[in-house]
Design a protein around this nucleic acid. Structure first.
Lengths: 121, 121
DNA sequence: TTGACATATTAGAATGCGGTGATATATAAT
DNA sequence: ATTATATATCACCGCATTCTAATATGTCAA
């Protein structure tokens, strides 16, 4: 079955879907989500995040860039270091809301085969 | 810089991050997000979704399985067709909240280079 | 300036993920 | 039973995303 065109496949709808999907993808990585959670505690410098995450500096920096692009965090340089903080108060709501839903579906989500866990190298 | 072990890299924290990241990944695909939006309007059968989305039946079915695993939707067979509906009222809040945040950061998200748009085939 | 420190960017390799087509299963009608 | 309809599952391909290491940029100290 293949459809032609309808209200739900109009360009602006597709555009919005792409934009929002990109936004969700910001939190769709374990490391990025951990970063957001740490920043919800308090602002951190990149070095602090690297230390607490146990992830390479390059990776952390890239993830931070991604989160910044998505509007989750903002950065501010203080001397040699750069401090990152949550950009929008609603981010906390978003994360908490997701946690609450996940808490009620933990077993199901764990059995999702379509989204595979990345094997640690 | 490489860290050893801390409260933020304890197994259960990592586990939770993986689980929640997986959950967000459910909405991190344009097609799946469109499906969720259609289901927020009203329940749909698979056939209706295929028609409205303009995506292959196989793909829609796989995406629905993913959304079901993540706890976003539930399915119910009625005769030959299967009707899908939103599983949790909080899903609407989650999507609306994200939309609101995105609306205030649209230009930035659009310029995010780390998450590339998948070229349509 | 030079060196040290902190962060950002880039390149390359490995792998995850989505799309499609073919096939399997389930239900209903004849 | 056979056929048609609706959905699910499977296998394969190609691109996207991630990781790591190397390098570049930016800032401060001496």
């Amino acid at each position: 079955m293949r459809a032609v065109s309808s209200a739900s496949s109009a360009p602006q709808v597709l555009q919005a879907a792409h934009l929002n999907a990109k936004f969700f993808q910001g939190l769709a990585d374990p490391t990025r989500l951990r970063i957001v959670r740490l920043l919800l505690e308090r602002p951190h410098t990149v070095g602090e995040l690297v230390e607490r995450l146990g992830v390479g500096q390059s990776g952390v920096s890239n993830h931070l860039a991604c989160l910044r692009w998505c509007g989750y965090v903002t950065s501010q340089r203080n001397g040699r270091s750069v401090t990152y903080r949550i950009a929008d108060r609603r981010v906390r709501l978003l994360v908490k809301l997701a946690e609450a839903i996940v808490a009620d579906n933990a077993s199901q989500i764990a059995s999702c085969m379509r989204i595979t866990d990345r094997a640690p190298r």
